[in-house]
Structure formats: structure tokens, C-alpha cells
Design a protein around this nucleic acid. Structure first.
Lengths: 137, 137
DNA sequence: ATCGTTATTGCACCCAGTTGCAATTATACA
DNA sequence: TGTATAATTGCAACTGGGTGCAATAACGAT
């Protein structure tokens, strides 16, 4: 189901600004930073205020169209239609590798069983050292 | 070994501002937000600039005296002498429970074995639903 | 105790993201 | 097609955190 339909289902209005953001997610892969989204929207519709964009990204997140993950310095938005997975980002060389979504299942299970605490790890960004960079001191 | 000694060992100077921050960590438990630290420093030494405080917190982190964890909206600093663990924070009621440090060991192992990726999960802040809040819809 | 070096501070300004509020606009309905 | 109304936008100002740079201060050597 498209993001725009989901908006309507939640009683939200379909504004040109929202259409622009949703189209961008559909057209250009799954991972977009706030910067990229703002740049794209401004290119197509120069007057749009950044707060409108941030507010709409939050709304798309709250209706489940988009996942927001924090990667230390910046924020990444991930179109949920692309499926779930995690990211391994090397803090030295910046290499970015996708990682199976079941990585955190044992953690989720432990938290559920031992702490009665419910967590759903979706689209985490994990910083560490890749094979090459891990060898060097 | 005290933070102040560690400073010297790393060729860093022992300024009154640093002494104030280090003392605060020693005196008042392990978990402090940037806000709390700034408030405390300002109380004791009103003129200190916030950038001085942030820079010193980064330095204490880089020499291993303090761990910095990001919890979505704010940043938490944790005095490393208190031992390692993680935090479960309920997104509904805000309840905060400590959690064993070995929680992420299986994840670290998988990343090492399958992805040759090295990560050290230290003092994570995990947002989810606690037992009570998980029951209610 | 003084001095020179080098780290550190304060300042002023930047940046991404957020918020309250008045003006605007998408939509349901007549 | 026009209108009422609630959602949305743009604005302006704010927030937490960070940065480059000149002035200052800690500290080892004399």
C-alpha cells in the first residue's frame, strides 16, 4: 500500500509537500538522510519550510511508512516497503554493509524472558570496525 | 585510577573546570545528562562556557573515564568506574531498569563470525515497553 | 619565582532539528 | 460549485550541541 493511501486512511491530508516526499522515497532507493530529502524538496518546490519537512517525516514514521534511525551524527530515513535489515558502518573507513534483520532476535528474546521488556529492533545503524580496519592498530 | 590522574597521564592539564566535572562524576552516582552537568558546573562556577563543558566531556570520554550514550533526544554520560551495563527505558512510563552487560554478547559474536565486523556494545540505552505498559493497548 | 610553551578557555557564531502560533488550504458536505 | 472546519503550512524564534580563533592559564624547565 502506498504512503499516500496510508495518509488518507489515517485521516491525514494529501498536500503537495507530502506527495513530493513520498514520491522521493518511492523513486530513489530506501535510505535517505534528512539533508537529501530537504535538498530534493527544495529543488522541486523552493519555498517549502524545513519544519514542514521534518514534521512530515515524523508523520510518515508514525503511520509506519518510514523508519527513522539515528546514526550518531545524522538521521537516516528508511522506506519500510524495502524490507527490514540493519547496517554495519565502519567508524574508520565508512564502509556500509547490510546485515540480516534477525541479528537482534536473541537480544529481543532475552529482554522478553528475563526482563519482561518488549523491544523491536528495526533498522539499526551499528558502528564498529570492518575486517580491514580491525586489523590495523 | 582517578579521572584527574588519567588526565595527567595523557599530557592534559588539570584545570578548575575539569576538576569540577570530575568531582561531580565521583560524587553523584554514575548517570548524568549534559544538562545536569552544565547546571552543576554553572552553580559552582557561573562563568564557565558550555563549549568548555562539552569539550571536556568529550575528552573524558576519549581517555576512557566516561562513556557517552545517545538516547534519542538527549545524551547521557556514564562514569566508567561504576562498571558496565545497559539501560532499558520504557517509552510510555519512562521507567529505567539496569540490564546485564552481556546482553549483546551473542550479537557481537554473530557480527564477528559472520560479518568479520567488530563492535563493542557498551552502556546502550534501549527504548521499549516495560511489563505493565506492554499489557495495555 | 619567573618564563616559555602548549593546552585550554571564552567568545561568537554555526548547525540540525523542534515548537507555538497565526495564516492558509485540503477535504467533506450542502 | 461554494462553504465550513480541521489539518497543515510558513514563520520566527529557540534548543542542544559543536567549531575556529584569539586570549589566557597550567605546568615543566630554568
Amino acid at each position: 500500500m502506498s504512503c499516500l493511501e496510508t495518509l488518507k486512511e489515517n485521516g491525514l491530508k494529501l498536500t503537495p509537500q507530502r506527495r513530493l516526499i513520498a514520491d522521493y522515497f518511492h523513486d530513489s532507493g530506501s535510505h535517505l538522510t534528512a539533508e537529501e530529502i530537504i535538498a530534493h524538496v527544495h529543488e522541486k518546490m523552493p519555498g517549502v519550510n524545513k519544519s514542514t519537512i521534518y514534521r512530515n517525516l515524523d508523520i510518515f514514521e508514525s503511520i509506519g511508512c518510514v523508519l527513522k534511525s539515528e546514526s550518531g551524527n545524522h538521521v537516516i530515513y528508511h522506506h519500510t516497503e524495502e524490507g527490514h535489515h540493519h547496517h554495519l558502518v565502519c567508524i574508520k573507513c565508512g564502509k556500509n554493509v547490510d546485515c540480516d534483520e534477525m541479528l537482534f532476535w536473541p537480544v529481543e528474546k532475552t529482554l522478553r524472558d528475563k526482563y519482561a521488556f518488549r523491544v523491536d529492533f528495526k533498522h539499526q545503524v551499528i558502528n564498529g570496525l570492518c575486517e580491514n580496519c580491525g586489523k590495523q592498530p
